[in-house]
Amino acid sequence: MSSDEWQLVVFTASMALMATLCLIPPGVVLAWWLARRNWRGKMVVETLVSLPLVLPPVVTGLLLLKAFSRRGVLGAWLEEQWGLEVVFTWKAVVLALATMSSPLFVRTARAALEAVDPRLEQQARTLGAGEWRVFFTVTLPMAARGVMAGALLAFARALGEFGATVMVAGNIPGETTTLPVAIYHAVQLGQDEKAWHLAAVAVVVSFLAVGLSEILVRRRSG
């Protein structure tokens, strides 16, 4: 592979990693909330969390574009308060990858948290531990493998994201072009050899991430 192709792979992997790291804290909180709490409207939240799995990615990207553009509510607020532009920057890449990866992470983390025996949490409370201490010393450590498996699945999903990314971040070489976008662009230009090189790298990295996730899930189940 050429140096340009390696830079593209590194950029995509770094964006996917950043998106996954940004997703983990709120994703764990949301997964715990769904796993341990019941409230009116919970089904609506569960449906919203899962929507990126079933919506066409370009629709999700269009919604993000509308919300984070300069005329959008969130985009205008970010520019006014922090001077940040999101659309058609690397930040839009991270946003799109995190959004499309979030259902896999939240669903996997929720299953891991639900598998933790509530009696162990209750025993910790009877010994005087508060809710946050119970969560960080009992619940989260016992669900750690499942949470990590979800993070790996989210990372793998982020590596392969195309539709939402191209809508909200575009295809700006050296700034927003990710591996899937580059593969599509190479095919459009008739650069089949380059497309196959990049596709092979995408397959290998995704296979390793999903395989490691499966190993963690099996160990947790065992």
Rank of each mutant, 00 (worst) to 15 (best):
A111R: 06
A76Q: 09
A124Y: 02
V166T: 09
M142Y: 09
A151F: 12
M15R: 08
V44C: 05
G222P: 00
A98D: 05
V210G: 10
V187W: 05
G83Y: 07
A129V: 03
A143H: 07
L30A: 01
G72W: 04
T165D: 12
F136R: 13
T60N: 10
R40T: 14
S69I: 02
A169V: 07
E175R: 15
A129H: 05
L51Q: 04
V205S: 03
R220L: 09
V106E: 00
T99F: 10
H197E: 07
A195I: 04
L65I: 01
A124W: 03
V210M: 13
L74P: 02
R71Q: 15
P180L: 12
R110K: 14
V116I: 01
F162R: 08
L140V: 03
R220F: 07
E161Q: 09
H185Q: 15
D4C: 01
V204W: 08
R219I: 09
S213R: 00
W39R: 04
V86P: 10
L65M: 12
G163Y: 08
A16H: 06
L17D: 05
V10I: 05
P56L: 12
K91F: 14
L53N: 05
A200M: 08
R36N: 12
A109V: 10
F88T: 02
R218T: 03
V94Y: 07
R36M: 13
G41W: 04
G72C: 08
G83W: 06
V49N: 08
V147E: 05
V29C: 07
A202M: 08
L55E: 10
A112H: 06
A186Y: 10
L127C: 11
F136I: 12
E5M: 02
G170I: 04
N38W: 13
S69D: 14
R157W: 04
G27V: 01
R133Q: 14
A151V: 01
V29A: 15
L159F: 06
I215Q: 13
V29L: 13
G190M: 12
T99C: 10
L74D: 03
L23P: 10
F207S: 15
Q122V: 11
L95R: 03
A169P: 07
G190C: 10
F105N: 01
V168F: 08
F105Q: 03
G211E: 02
L95T: 05
R119H: 14
E175S: 13
G128R: 01
E79A: 09
P52V: 01
S3M: 15
G160C: 13
S69T: 00
L212W: 09
V187G: 03
L208M: 11
S2K: 00
Q188S: 15
T108R: 07
A151L: 07
F11E: 00
Q188H: 11
D117K: 00
M1N: 11
A156Y: 07
V166Q: 06
